[in-house]
Design a protein around this nucleic acid. Sequence first.
RNA 1: GCGCCCGUAGCUCAGUGGAUAGAGCAACUGACUUCGGAUCAGUAGGUCGGGGGUUCGAAUCCCUCCGGGCGCGCCA
Length: 601
Amino acid sequence: MPSTDSTGPSHTATPTAAALAAAPTAAASSSAPPTADRPIRTQARQAVERAWACAIAEGRLPPLPEDADTPTVDIERPAKPEHGDLSTNLAMKLARPYRRAPLEIARVLADELAREAAEAFNGPLTTPLATAEAVAPGFINLRLSDGALRATIDRILSDPGSWGRVSVPHPQRINVEFVSANPTGPLHIGNARGAFVGDLLCRVLEAAGHTVTREYYFNDFGAQVRNLGASVWALATGKPVPEDGYHGAYVADLARELPAEVRAAAEAATATGEDLAWAVGAWASERVRAGIEASLEHLGVHFDAWKTEGSLHREGWVERAIEKLRAAGHVYEEDGATWFRSTAFGDDKDRVIRKSNGDYTYFASDIGYVEEKFSRGFDHLIYIWGADHHGTVARVRNAAQAMGHDPARVEMILVAWVRFIRDGREISMSKRSGEFITLDELLAEVGVDAARWFFASRAYTSGIDFDIELAKKQSNENPVYYVQYAHARIASILRKAAEAGLSPADSVGGILAGAPEAALARALVRLPEVVEDAAAAEETQGVTAFATDLATTLHAFYRDARVIDRAEPERSRARLALVLATKTTLANALGLLGISAPESM
RNA sequence: GCGCCCGUAGCUCAGUGGAUAGAGCAACUGACUUCGGAUCAGUAGGUCGGGGGUUCGAAUCCCUCCGGGCGCGCCA
């Protein structure tokens, strides 16, 4: 089925990638001051770095000793509001190499920061900071200036589409392979977590400036396909499914839908002694594969490339990879089989590439696939695997290294298992027996948005119990609706305002001096750094936490500040601008997770 | 036996070197003649599995023990 091997670059130009490419231009043409181009936390870090350099230049701090490592400047988000909007522990890190008290160093740095802030107050805005305060045991607590907040929010208003997208210093072309379930039956709930985790990771990487290809890999020629064909053929000819065949209801559906030409081909194969199970299986597995693709699209997961194991052999990737390993001296023959010397790279045993009966192992395909992927120009390969595959991580990375690739560019993300529970009992999952709940059935019960939020808010390393009845019951209590409600509430306010003849201003102007406004502004400007952190950690819990926090802050603002007020149209229009920026931020955060942002609920 | 992952509030989970460990749900007490009550304000709930160590500072790093999951194939 060559049509499924569409690994060409034509599918990589996703809307997201296009938006990324357009982002710098749009930002440059906006009227916002230049400081709004960078995340506000980045601006703060650069201010601290400047203060440190100035202190050294002025002799108030010594240069770092030659033998000391240069510490990185980390900007943190204090837990307590009285500790400021941001803080840094740089002075405590410098205490040891400088052999001076951390608080003393902190005072010097805070002094430099305060001086720059005072100069900025009278001249062009170069620092996002209003104040810097040194406190025991050596923290420097920073407070953002209204001007910096205003510049950032006005930039959201002028270019909402790119808000939350950032650009890492070295963007990469990344291949993310996930799901990759063999097409012998519909996707079931056991495949759910990998599908969501993979897609969420892709979205976060794209938002950080990387170019991502979503890839699905499957076996199109093995015994499983033949087995599926035999099962379908049995039912199509009125016989029972073989005991070790596939028994799900979908097999009967396939048998009913068997086209006349496939049936004829199978009968002809029977007569000539050819492989009828293969003839039927090839049709059935492609039929199943198309159903899988449709299910995934329904989840909001679109794959750019579908790659088959058979194509790796037909196109010679497997043989070329093995020859490359052999040329490098990492392959040997023993007991009639061909082995990869994985132990040379720290594995606990060597691995068979080609069995003594002449067949290649699955591992051989893995090796060829690494070569094939790198040949397409990817800088980085990510595999999303179930945690039960952790035993195969080392051998694949070792083989990549043995073929001359940097093993750091081959990354496996191991997703922990989900135990699905119904009526207090774990649901056993088996495609063979047909006892399983399909992904489509699960989504019909709990909804795509709720399911996406569920998986986005949990670390993929943690095993999870998913009680289906509980999930259905709790669906109305799901935090995702809390965030969506905040978005819909703002939409409602904007509609009401339009009816009253009030439209959002182009700028929030001077209203950030107000306490409710200041709190909301400080919450929403964080989105770019949340995206940076999510991409760096390859995790999305930070995004759900941020969205929940912003929704809470919005509800508090709604309580404390009247937005629509005909008596004070200027302040009202500025507040409308602020809630509009909040709406954009909520929508972009939800969009990052593939979750809808409804105008009404 | 060896290897990897996990153990945090009644439940489901965040937090992986910083300040008094957080959220949602569940429980309890309150709030609407006004922009959406799918909301808000508050109360209660913790030996961060146990022990030892490193550090100015540990839920976070190291060692060890206990408990749970998953691997250890010329299967895919």
